[in-house]
């Protein structure tokens, strides 16, 4: 990862002629070119089945492109060692569309996972997790087992888990689909704040409301391809 020296000029995620296919199915996305600047904020849009989740999985290194080159943090993912991949993933926060919480664990333990995998001490973990969980208004449900939480509660746990590490890249797949409007905007505010602190954010969403209100540029998927729809207004109008 020697490319770190060029961090200001080099895109944090870079795709060149990337294609995705599952097994022998036809390609879901073909010849994608995409460069995301460090500190940028994008919505990811497209019809259901257009490949939003697939594109995000590639960015969080769970899916390898079937063709083309993918660079994340300046390193070619195709050649990265397993250990290096783990280190890269620690700098990426992910909110899954279907949450993918560890259902047998408490909300607290779920949010603690990204900190525990990097070996942080339990005292520090406790401080951070409690603070964040009360921020997403889950302090009462902290010790509830995840399988007993409501959809909206799970979503907030998933988001808390994604941001607990103050990631350099935040990838969120429909992060506000299951929560009430006021919580949705509170969560969006969290993403905006993180972005201000330098986190690169990509949020997949169907919500035209959200897109209209924040008006960040969109990565729009259509017909296996991709186009960027630029922001109409400046980001600061969001507040």
């Amino acid at each position: 990862m020697e490319a770190h020296k060029n961090i200001l000029t080099e895109p944090i995620i870079d795709m060149q002629n990337v294609s995705i296919r599952y097994g022998k199915d036809p390609e879901v996305l073909s010849d994608i070119k995409l460069s995301l600047e460090k500190g940028s904020f994008h919505f990811l849009t497209g019809k259901s089945g257009a490949g939003k989740t697939s594109l995000l999985s590639m960015m969080y290194l769970a899916l390898k492109p079937s063709r083309g080159t993918l660079n994340v943090f300046g390193a070619n993912v195709g050649y990265a060692r397993r250990e290096d991949m783990a280190m890269m993933r620690r700098k990426i926060g992910v909110v899954f569309q279907d949450f993918r919480l560890l259902e047998h664990l408490s909300a607290y333990d779920n949010v603690a996972v990204p900190l525990r995998v990097r070996g942080m001490g339990e005292n520090e973990i406790r401080k951070r997790v409690k603070e964040l969980l009360s921020w997403v208004e889950l302090d009462k449900s902290m010790d509830k087992i995840c399988s007993t939480l409501s959809g909206g509660e799970k979503q907030r746990v998933a988001i808390a888990r994604a941001v607990i590490n103050r990631p350099e890249i935040l990838l969120a797949d429909e992060p506000t689909g299951n929560v009430d409007d006021d919580i949705a905007f509170k969560l969006m505010k969290l993403f905006v704040e993180l972005n201000k602190l330098g986190t690169t954010v990509v949020i997949a969403t169907h919500s035209t409301d959200l897109i209209a209100r924040y008006n960040y540029p969109q990565i729009h998927l259509e017909n296996k391809g991709l186009k960027i729809i630029p922001a109409l207004r400046r980001v600061k109008n969001a507040e």
């Binding site: 280190m87 993933r89 992910v94 993918r100 995998v117």
Partner: peptide, 16 residues
């Protein structure tokens, strides 16, 4: 497998 995949995405190494 599912849990392990989640742990991996959260940055867990194989050693973990």
């Amino acid at each position: 497998q599912n849990i392990i995949e989640i742990l991996h995405i959260m940055g867990a190494t194989d050693n973990y």
